[in-house]
Design a protein around this nucleic acid. Structure first.
Lengths: 253, 253
DNA sequence: GAGTGGTCTAGACCACCGC
DNA sequence: CGGTGGTCTAGACCACTCT
């Protein structure tokens, strides 16, 4: 069975190319192996480089390939499962192996954040930045917005900014009773600064996880976490990640 | 003497273009409005059409634009919040406003599915297909894999396939006691058949939600749901979706 | 400096939609 | 039919990394 026969509507070259490459990756390459360069590959398949690149881009989007400027294209390892929301509703941890506080500033948030926090634009707001590391790689950045009223005892702390300040804000948050939280996931593209932290180019596809924390009858904090979409599979509420990964093109036969 | 100093490290044209267009969308266009065609836009900005398209592709990825072949490019409405996992752990509902059963066949699953279900390759397996509709639009397709042993009383039902059979399988599932479930979200690209159901082109970005259902000490069912990434924001465990949407390029000022 | 992927151009033709 | 977005080409140059 298989393929063939009449394609009343011929499929695009790049799509066919992607399928061929995908099968080659399964059978003839191993993780970490370097592919021939784009010019050679294009010549080998008899297509323009732009067409080949369209196929490679899709495979990279699906986490099958990893491309690095000045280096080359390599076969990517399977996506890592990254736990999001440890099953229970909890505040972000002050001491967390995965998340490392970077700094904390007091700045005006984007309008959308003010709206979600239901705060006045002028209200003091702490913005904590953290980076998540998994398997020795930066997989996510986070901006945690905390209205000053949510951490009233913070002023006693000396450090005005920096990682120490960030840890202080996180520690103070634990004192509030968490009444609930909700979470949303959507596709986005990496801002320039996030892209730098994640070792990707600006515009790289990311999974944006927005979490609202409710306490004292208000939205006490808002987290916007940006995960690398190429290398991460977000897992929810379970110990070990599921083993299956999205198998884009192959079907039940 | 003019200066070229403005951009010490020049940002790519398509990136700048995307920013300009994004701001124009905010200020000068309303939802549903039709943009000028790509050739005109490219000429207006003095770039090649391919470069303009790179910018449009990113904006479409972020859910800001909607493009349709033969029609044109329109301003997309804000992403719809789609509830995934109604807070509690439940079986997929047999009667569900959102999910509509399409059909049910008995076929060999992809290898990855067999592995996740811990079933032998030859074991009988029901594959239920469903489509999710939200706000009058198809937003997701699902393949629900159910080993025959999970629904032992099913053989009494007459319909060998089709939507009636699908409903029967879902109904039988309710008889099992659900012991737990886990869930993962990752980025993928639409297979040809899914793309058709979702009114997108093959390869369109999708959010793949994989859910394992545990009962009787085994994985009793496995669901692989494919959501349109351009129009959907997946929400978890709360009544109303969050109001904030990912605001890719603007920063706290 | 050599080699890689990333950006960009100026064309061409095709598939689809609505009139 | 004309107009739209989708695909494809054959070049060019740039930014980056490694040696």
């Amino acid at each position: 069975m298989g393929t063939t026969q009449l394609e009343a509507v011929p499929e695009p070259k790049y799509w066919h190319l992607k399928t061929v490459l995908s099968e080659a990756l399964d059978s003839e390459f191993s993780v970490g192996e370097i592919l021939p360069n784009e010019r050679d590959l294009a010549a080998r398949f008899g297509v323009a480089r732009a067409t080949l690149r369209q196929a490679l881009e899709q495979l990279e989007l699906e986490g099958r390939l990893q491309r690095r400027r000045g280096v080359g294209t390599t076969v990517a390892p399977p996506r890592v499962g990254v736990a999001v929301g440890a099953g229970q509703q909890t505040w972000p941890e002050a001491e967390d192996d995965a998340w490392q506080p970077v700094d904390c500033v007091q700045a005006a948030p984007p309008a959308a954040v003010s709206a979600a926090l239901e705060t006045a634009s002028g209200e003091p707001l702490h913005t904590v930045r953290r980076i998540r590391t998994s398997h020795g790689q930066h997989v996510a950045t986070e901006l945690l917005y905390v209205p000053a009223v949510s951490v009233p005892d913070l002023s006693a702390i000396d450090a005005p900014s920096g990682a120490a300040r960030a840890r202080a804000v996180l520690r103070e948050l634990q004192h509030l009773t968490l009444e609930g939280q909700d979470r949303a996931v959507e596709l986005g593209s990496a801002r320039a600064d996030d892209a730098r932290e994640l070792d990707r180019l600006p515009g790289a596809p990311v999974l944006v996880v927005t979490t609202r924390y409710f306490a004292a009858g208000r939205t006490a904090a808002l987290s916007v976490a940006t995960y690398r979409a190429d290398t991460c599979r977000l897992t929810f509420g379970d110990p070990a990640g599921v083993e299956i990964h999205h198998d884009s093109e192959r079907q039940a036969s």
